[in-house]
C-alpha cells in the first residue's frame, strides 16, 4: 500500500513536470545543459523533483517485481527465485528509495535558504550537470551493498566502489558548498530554521565520508554489516534528512515567513545528541561490533549504553520539533 501510494505520488509529479516543462529531460534541464537554451530553465526544486520522480519510480518497479516473485514462490515453492537476483532487486529498490528521500528533502534547503538570506539559488549548468550525475549514480551504485557477494560480476562491484566515490561530488561540491556559500557572510541572525538547515548540510556532507569509506572493498571486507553501516546512514539521515524536514515543518508553521525569530538552542542540543548517537555507531563499527544482533557481548555494551542516552535525547527533541509544528496547525487552519 505504501509503495502504491509513493508510485501514485511519483506519477503525479511526473505528470506535473511533463505538463509544465514538456518532458522529464527538460525537467532535468537537459535543454539548457546540452542545448544551451536559456528558455524555461527549471528552478532547483523542479530539477530535484524530476530526479526523485525518475529514480523512485524505477525503484518501486524493482521492489514490486521482487515482491511479486516472492508471493509466487510462497504460493508455488517449485517456482524458485535466484537469491542473488532477489538481492540485487531488493538493494536496487532500498538503496534508491532511501537516497531519493534525501534528494527530495534537500529542496527545503534550495527553497528556504534564499528566502532567509536574500541570496538566490540559481540553476546553473554546473548545478544541472550535478543533478544529472546524481540521477545516473544513484541508479548505478547499489552494488556497493553487494561487495561481500563474491558471486557478483567483478565489474559490477568495481562500479559499486568507484561510482560511490563519484556520487559524492555533487553532494560535496555543488549542493553542500553552494549552501555554505549562500550562508557565508550573509548578515543573517541564526534561528531555529536556519540552524537546522546548516546542521542538515553538514550532516549530509559529513555522512558521505564514512559512506564512501565503507563502499571501498578493502574496508568493506572488515566493516560491512558492523555498526559502521548504521553509523554512516544515521549520519546523513538523522543529521541531514531530518533537520531538513524539521526546518521545513517549522517554516510552514510560521506561515512561510523566513524572518528570523527566537533562538536555536533546541537545534543545537539535537545536533549534540545526534552526533553522540552516530559516533557510538561508528565507534561500534571500528570495534567490529556486528549490526542487527539482539544480544550484545559484554565488551560491546558500553557503546550501547551511551548510544541509548543519545537516542533518548534525539527522540525527545524530535518530539519537540513535531509538537512545535502540530501546535501551530489550528492557527494555520484558522488563518486559511
Amino acid at each position: 500500500m505504501i509503495g502504491v501510494g509513493f508510485l501514485i505520488w511519483c506519477l503525479e509529479l511526473a505528470r506535473g513536470i511533463i505538463a509544465t516543462y514538456g518532458g522529464l529531460g527538460r525537467g532535468l534541464g537537459w535543454h539548457a545543459l546540452f542545448g544551451g537554451s536559456t528558455q524555461d530553465v527549471p528552478p532547483p526544486t523542479v530539477v530535484a523533483a524530476t530526479m526523485v520522480t525518475i529514480v523512485t519510480t524505477l525503484a518501486l518497479i524493482a521492489g514490486a517485481v521482487v515482491l511479486v516473485m516472492s508471493l509466487i514462490n510462497l504460493a508455488f515453492p517449485a517456482v524458485e527465485i535466484d537469491p542473488l537476483l532477489a538481492k540485487n532487486l531488493i538493494y536496487f529498490f532500498g538503496h534508491t528509495f532511501i537516497n531519493a528521500t534525501i534528494y527530495m528533502a534537500v529542496t527545503a534547503v534550495y527553497e528556504i535558504l534564499p528566502r532567509v538570506t536574500g541570496r538566490p539559488w540559481k540553476t546553473t549548468k554546473v548545478f544541472l550537470a550535478a543533478w544529472t550525475l546524481s540521477t545516473t549514480m544513484v541508479l548505478t551504485i547499489f552494488p556497493h551493498h553487494l561487495l561481500m557477494d563474491f558471486a557478483m560480476p567483478v565489474w559490477a562491484l568495481a562500479i559499486g566502489q568507484v561510482f560511490s566515490f563519484v556520487n559524492s561530488f555533487p553532494v560535496l561540491i555543488v549542493t553542500g558548498l553552494g549552501a555554505l556559500a549562500i550562508l557565508h557572510r550573509s548578515g543573517i541572525r541564526w534561528d531555529m530554521v536556519s540552524t537546522l538547515l546548516l546542521i542538515s548540510v553538514f550532516g549530509w556532507m559529513a555522512g558521505v565520508v564514512p559512506a564512501v569509506v565503507d563502499a571501498t572493498v578493502a574496508v568493506n571486507l572488515v566493516m560491512d554489516n558492523t555498526m559502521w553501516v548504521p553509523g554512516h546512514f544515521h549520519f546523513y539521515l538523522l543529521l541531514g534528512l531530518l533537520p531538513m524536514i524539521f526546518a521545513f515543518m517549522i517554516y510552514l508553521a510560521r506561515g512561510e515567513d523566513a524572518t528570523p525569530r527566537g533562538g536555536d538552542l533546541t537545534a543545537i542540543i539535537y545536533l549534540i545528541f545526534g552526533l553522540g548517537l552516530v559516533t557510538m555507531f561508528l565507534v561500534g563499527g571500528w570495534a567490529s561490533v556486528p549490526r542487527r544482533w539482539a544480544e550484545h557481548l559484554p565488551e560491546w555494551q558500553i557503546w550501547d549504553q551511551i548510544a541509548s542516552v543519545m537516542a533518548a535525547g534525539v527522540i525527545a527533541l524530535t518530539g519537540a520539533f513535531v509538537a512545535m509544528f502540530l501546535a501551530r496547525i489550528p492557527a494555520l487552519l484558522r488563518e486559511g
Binding site: H184, R185, L198, A206, P210, W286
Partner: peptide, 26 residues
C-alpha cells in the same frame, strides 16, 4: 578508516562552524 573519516568530518565541521561564526557579517 576511522581516523581518516574523523579527520574529514572534523574538517567539514570546522568549515560549518566558520560559516556560522561569520554569518552575521554582511
Amino acid at each position: 578508516s576511522a581516523v581518516l573519516s574523523l579527520l574529514a568530518i572534523l574538517s567539514l565541521a570546522a568549515v560549518a562552524l566558520r560559516v556560522r561564526a561569520l554569518a552575521h557579517e554582511r
